[in-house]
Structures are given as structure tokens and as C-alpha cells.
Design a protein around this nucleic acid. Structure first.
Lengths: 194, 194
DNA sequence: CCCTTATTGTATCATTCAGTAAAAAAGGAG
DNA sequence: CTCCTTTTTTACTGAATGATACAATAAGGG
């Protein structure tokens, strides 16, 4: 067993609460009192458990991608490129319009444009989004070699198109778009996919 | 003529500088020193000319829509629905990747998710984006009655699709996407348009 | 030339920000 | 029990935030 006074809160539960706040208010819009209130802990506990605001946010990114947004990695395992896209978009729409979550996509809206102090966070989000698009690109390349996609297809452009629509859906959801509307959008967007 | 000491700066030029800062750093990421430095004026001049940070931002919205982003309203006057979409997307791509501008779209990234203090600004941006989409919808309805679009088309869904792609392009541009890549995306997205 | 009016510069306001030092509290080990 | 380690609590730090008070300044109107 661990020695010392036992931690009185569940660290993953607290991380989930922090993720929700960052998701709703963005990195810069979230203050430390916002976080400690939502997490139900006080400031030194947050610092000892997570480092600082920056480190907590980075842990929240991982938590998001491995948990609430796991549909992305799952979708890559679909048998056909088209099925990948269908699952990716429908999963995204479910995620960004789920009443249990803040509206919109954490990866898109939590640090899209920000001041100098948060620029490293913004860059990190750019890198993460780029990474996801690269995985999608690899999946499409595989589909091309498998003959699943036409041999003349450009996997890079297709991946960029698919993620562009995903981002657009995220922005729509951050506004007033409904799940039905976004499903119609995705249905339409799928017409452009080979 | 106006009495009193004459203003030493050009109010529209200062507003353009403020717009650029808000565009690059977002509403919350922009501090008053950021603004006064960029505008070349001191704080009381800013307050007397524009009100406060909130009011200055709202004036920047109008400046953006009537100036740098005027391609949107212009595109509505194209003769066919398809030409509207082509001009809208190509104009957006030009705007969000223009090296003279901050990367990305002001309407998308300056207040997508933020804290309680800026929530009114966020809502205002949602309203403005919704308004633009409504104008697009009206244009497509006209195209349907004109026989330019198939009579079975749903103008609302088409407008939502077109704006979704625009928003996605904006997010891509806030990352590392190049103009050529986005043009390819738009070309692909156009395949889904009737 | 004085008076009115508006802008500018300086200096400051109270508040909030992220981050910490130090003591109290809660367990396990001896 | 007493020591030892870790967490919690309270209180606090210096810096940055948005916003103003006030006096100096620069023009036009009479």
C-alpha cells in the first residue's frame, strides 16, 4: 500500500470534470477556480496531482481521445474506407451533440486561437489534429492498395476532406445545429466520397 | 466642424488593427495592452472611441464582414447556386490563407468556446454565423424556385452543408493547411452539391 | 484672446489571475 | 504510542486583468 495520507478524490473522475470545463470554456476561458470547483478539490491538490494548468490540459487531451472520442480510432478499423468515414462522422455527430457533453468538439474549440501565453497549447492541438488526419490518410492509402478505393485516389486529399467536414460539424454543433441536421449534412458530404 | 481637440489616429485604421489582434488571439486571448499596442493609441483613447473591449469587438465583427470577408455577401449575387458556392468557398480559402491576414476565420475562431465573462460575445458570434447561413438558405430557395436547383432540393440542408465545409476550411487553415490543399478539398466537396 | 469641447498622457483603481509556502490532518510502519 | 510520508487546508504572493480619474493639451467658436 502507499504510505502517507490517502488522496480523497478519484483522479480520473477529477480529470473528467476538468476536461468538461476545458471543453465548454476553452483553455483560456477556464480559470483555476473554475477547475477546482468542478473537480471538487482545492488548488494545491490540483497542482500536486496534475502539475499545473498546462499539464492538466494535456492530460485532458489524452483522456478525451482515449475516452469520449474513442470512436475516431475505432472507426479506422472498419472494413471499408466508406464505412470508416460513415462511422467517423456519425460518431462525431453523436459526440458533439450529446447532451451529456459540452456542445462541440474539444479538439476543435478548446484552443483554436489564443494569446501568447497559451500558444504552446494551441500548437499542441494543431499537432494532435494533424496526427489524427495522418492516421486517416494512412487508412485510405491502405484502402487504395486493397482496391477498396479507386487506384487514382489521393489519400491525402480525401483525409483532408473528411477531417474538414468533421471540423465543420464541430463548429456547427458549437452553434445551434441539431443532430438531425448534422446527419443530413454528413449524408450529403458522403456523396463526394468515392 | 467638430470642436475640441482633434483625434490623432484614424478610427478605421485602429479598428483594423484591433480586428487583426482579435482574429489572431481570440477575444479572451486579447488583452488591452495587446490592443493599445497594435492600435498605437493609449487606453483612454480606446475607451473614448470604442466604448470598451466588448464594444470594440462588436465593431470589429462588422468591420470584418463588410471588409475583409465581403466575398460572402458578394457571392450571393452570383447567377447560379453552384457559382455562389464556388465563389464562397474560393473566397473563404483566399481569406483564411492570405498571408496578410491571421490564419483562419475570424467568425469561427475568435470566440468559439469561452468563459462566462465572454459568453455574450460567443452567443453574438453564433447569431452572426446563423444569420449568414440563413442568407445562404434564402439564396438556395430562390435557386429552387428559379429551377436552378432541382425542385426536390432542401435549401436548409444545402446551406448547412456549404457552411459546414466553410467552417471546416477555417479550422484547417488555423492549423497547417495550405491554399492548394484547401482548394482540392473544396473541389471534392463540390461533388456533393447538386 | 478667452472659453468651450474633446483627446491625450499619467497614474491608479479594485479584481482576478496562476502558482506556492507552511501548517494541520490522516493514514501506515516501527 | 511515536515517527514518517503524503494530502489537505488556509493564507498568501506578485503579476496581469479591464476600466477610470484627473490634469495637461490642442483645436475651434465667439
Amino acid at each position: 500500500m502507499s504510505v502517507g495520507r490517502p488522496r480523497e478524490f478519484d483522479i480520473n473522475k477529477a480529470l473528467d470534470q476538468a476536461l468538461d470545463v476545458f471543453w465548454r470554456k476553452g483553455y483560456e476561458g477556464t480559470s483555476l477556480p473554475d477547475l477546482t470547483d468542478a473537480m471538487g478539490i482545492n488548488r494545491p491538490s490540483l497542482y500536486s496531482a496534475f502539475g499545473n494548468k498546462d499539464a492538466l490540459f494535456r492530460k485532458a487531451i489524452d483522456r478525451y481521445l482515449e475516452g469520449r472520442a474513442c470512436h475516431f480510432h475505432e472507426s479506422l478499423e472498419e472494413p471499408t474506407a466508406r464505412a470508416v468515414v460513415e462511422k467517423l462522422w456519425s460518431g462525431s455527430i453523436e459526440l458533439v451533440t450529446n447532451p451529456r457533453n459540452p456542445r462541440g468538439c474539444f479538439m476543435v474549440q478548446s484552443a483554436l486561437a489564443c494569446g501568447d501565453a497559451a500558444d504552446a497549447i494551441r500548437k499542441e492541438m494543431v499537432k494532435r489534429r494533424t496526427k489524427c488526419e495522418a492516421l486517416l490518410c494512412e487508412r485510405f492509402e491502405r484502402a487504395i492498395t486493397d482496391g477498396d478505393l479507386p487506384s487514382g485516389s489521393n489519400a491525402g486529399y480525401l483525409a483532408k476532406y473528411v477531417s474538414t467536414v468533421s471540423y465543420g460539424i464541430a463548429v456547427q454543433a458549437a452553434g445551434n445545429a441539431t443532430r438531425d441536421q448534422l446527419n443530413q449534412v454528413a449524408k450529403l458530404a458522403l456523396l463526394a466520397f468515392p
